[in-house]
């Protein structure tokens, strides 16, 4: 039987050294839905996002307790190959971070590290990914140029294309539009709309209008705790918790 949820976290605790950044977070993500994680700075939403592809493993003093599953399997189990996990759970970062390589090589990178060498296949997948990320028309004539010559918005869409090229099942986005201007932001949001047909998307955002525009489900974090999670419409119109209401109406945070 297919699990009903693509990913889940159950009673997840996270520590940075002595500081407990996440308290007992349990949340379930349905396939092909966009979930927005909102909350004031330092509430743990980015930390939580980075637990979902074990990005926090790179921080030496961190510690995780509880369970995170992908298709029902615990991703923190000792037998899990972290590189394989991250191929299935892709990530787009807050600040565009293209490699100092050509546009083509940036997108092809994920394929190379996965051992795909067939050049025709790589070329096809690069084109497909750039088209999916709605940047193909802007870069198709200069695929060999350095990616660092692109504008911020273009770089971010390139980073999305790069993440899509390895065909992940889940895409994590950590405030992907926070460093971009409104037009570039709009493009990214339209992109998210189209991507959710194929991917399960979890997006951290500071911008509540953005959360309302792009997501199906919204989760509100505060001080390392998951306060409330529900349909985006409900959260924004009839939140159950007072803290959620205060936050979305701008009374704090």
């Amino acid at each position: 039987m297919e699990p009903e949820y693509k990913m889940s976290s159950e009673n997840l605790d996270f520590h940075y050294g002595d500081f407990k950044a996440l308290h007992n977070v349990s949340i379930y993500f349905k396939p092909c839905e966009v979930t927005a994680l909102i909350g004031p700075s330092g509430c743990g939403k980015s930390t939580f996002l980075r637990c979902l592809n074990r990005m926090n493993d790179l921080i030496p003093i961190s510690r995780v307790a509880g369970k995170v599953t992908l298709d029902g399997d615990d991703i923190y189990a000792s037998a899990v190959d972290v590189a394989m996990l991250r191929r299935k759970v892709g990530m787009v970062f807050q600040k565009p971070n293209p490699f100092p390589k050509s546009i083509f090589d940036n997108v092809a990178y994920g394929l190379w590290v996965n051992g795909i060498k067939d050049k025709a296949f790589v070329r096809e997948r690069v084109e497909e990914s750039l088209k999916q990320a709605a940047i193909w028309d802007e870069v198709k004539d200069r695929l060999q140029d350095t990616a660092l010559g692109l504008s911020g918005g273009q770089q971010q869409r390139l980073c999305i294309a790069r993440a899509l090229a390895v065909k992940p099942e889940v895409v994590l986005m950590d405030e992907p539009a926070s460093a971009l201007d409104p037009i570039a932001t709009q493009k990214i949001e339209e992109l998210i709309h189209r991507l959710k047909e194929t991917y399960t998307i979890i997006i951290v955002t500071h911008n509540m209008q953005q959360a309302a525009r792009v997501s199906d489900v919204t989760a509100f974090f505060y001080l390392g705790k998951l306060i409330e999670v529900g349909d985006t419409d409900t959260i924004f119109t009839r939140p159950k918790k007072k803290q959620t209401e205060d936050y979305i109406t701008g009374r704090f945070g």
Partner: peptide
């Protein structure tokens, strides 16, 4: 920048691949 290491890791690269293909060229 650490962002490059993270980008590489997030694409499923091992640490060795990240060193050889991203960190050293950069």
């Amino acid at each position: 920048p650490n962002a490059l290491r993270e980008a590489s890791a997030a694409l499923g690269a091992t640490q060795l691949q990240t060193i050889v293909r991203v960190v050293v060229p950069a």
